[in-house]
């Protein structure tokens, strides 16, 4: 319990900054929606006829961004990117923080097993993710309601946030796994950066080139389809299950490899 409280306190400031950044992103995006809504007439017809390569280059998927749900579905990628960076870095640091700050001598000499210390740290991470997710939810519903005559699309946004939460958990687990297997925080965060960049590029290329669809299956950024989530309000079960399974596996591997780790003092 003490470990959990300490974790939450340590991360409070960075969590607040992340949440503010997220609110700003939603604000900055939705602010200009009005401009799109005004010119709806031609745009909708035209966008349907454009090939997806062109839309990818333009920064839009093949959805009609002149409607609120279509416009909001574009946001899912932004949320994923920021949430991935937040979660993976949290995981990478939470596990190796004590060694970085040279205070491992104080916590790991207590009469507690290592997993009893790591588990509350990971739970603290999950709480951070939930707060991040909840703030995104509230900000989204608020801004959507403002531009959509009071209709906040609560059910669709909830499904979207649920999908985002699965991704967050996955990235937290991967990050903590990197933290547990690397000798230092620096290497853990470098590995995490590489992982986020590589999977992001995979998803971009998979969207662009038909022949590269196999790269998309490797990328968590492609696990969910923003259109299904936001427009149809449907969450695909299989990717969610795979992500959840991967989360459990990597969390387990993290606890296991941390158990055998040679702690630097």
């Amino acid at each position: 319990m003490n470990v959990l409280l300490k974790e939450l306190k340590l991360n409070l400031k960075s969590l607040i900054i992340w949440c503010l950044a997220q609110c700003f992103i939603i604000f900055a995006g939705m602010m200009k929606y009005q401009g799109f809504a005004d010119s709806e007439v031609d745009v909708s017809a035209l966008f349907d006829s454009l090939p997806k390569e062109v839309l990818t280059v333009l920064g839009m998927e093949s959805v009609n961004i002149a409607t609120i749900p279509g416009f909001y579905s574009v946001f899912f990628l932004y949320f994923m990117l920021l949430a991935a960076v937040h979660a993976i870095m949290y995981g990478a640091i939470a596990v190796s923080r004590e060694e970085r700050d040279h205070c491992a001598d104080f916590i790991y000499t207590r009469p507690r097993r290592r997993f009893q210390i790591i588990t509350p740290k990971l739970i603290g991470g999950v709480i951070n993710l939930i707060v991040f997710n909840a703030v995104t939810f509230v900000a989204s519903v608020g801004f959507i309601a403002y531009y959509n005559d009071g209709n906040g699309m609560i059910s669709e946004v909830s499904v979207t946030m649920l999908a985002l939460f699965f991704l967050q958990l996955f990235f937290l687990a991967i990050g903590s796994f990197f933290g547990a297997i690397s000798p230092s925080t620096k290497i853990a965060t470098s590995l995490s950066t590489g992982f986020v960049m590589l999977t992001f590029l995979f998803s971009v290329i998979a969207d662009l080139v038909d022949a590269a669809d196999f790269l998309g299956t490797l990328s968590p950024f492609n696990a969910f389809n923003a259109q299904d989530l936001v427009i149809n309000g449907q969450l695909e079960g299989l990717p969610a299950l795979i992500l959840l399974a991967a989360t459990l596996v990597f969390s387990g591997l993290c606890i296991l490899s941390f158990h055998f780790r040679n702690l630097k003092t």
Binding site: I25, Y78, L81, L82, V85, R100, T185, K186, T189
Partner: peptide, 19 residues
């Protein structure tokens, strides 16, 4: 730790540029 800060800032601006 340097990377979380720099990665957070850069990705924030990257998302802004996508918007």
């Amino acid at each position: 730790t340097v990377l979380p800060l720099s990665l957070g800032v850069v990705f924030f601006f990257y998302v802004i540029s996508m918007i």
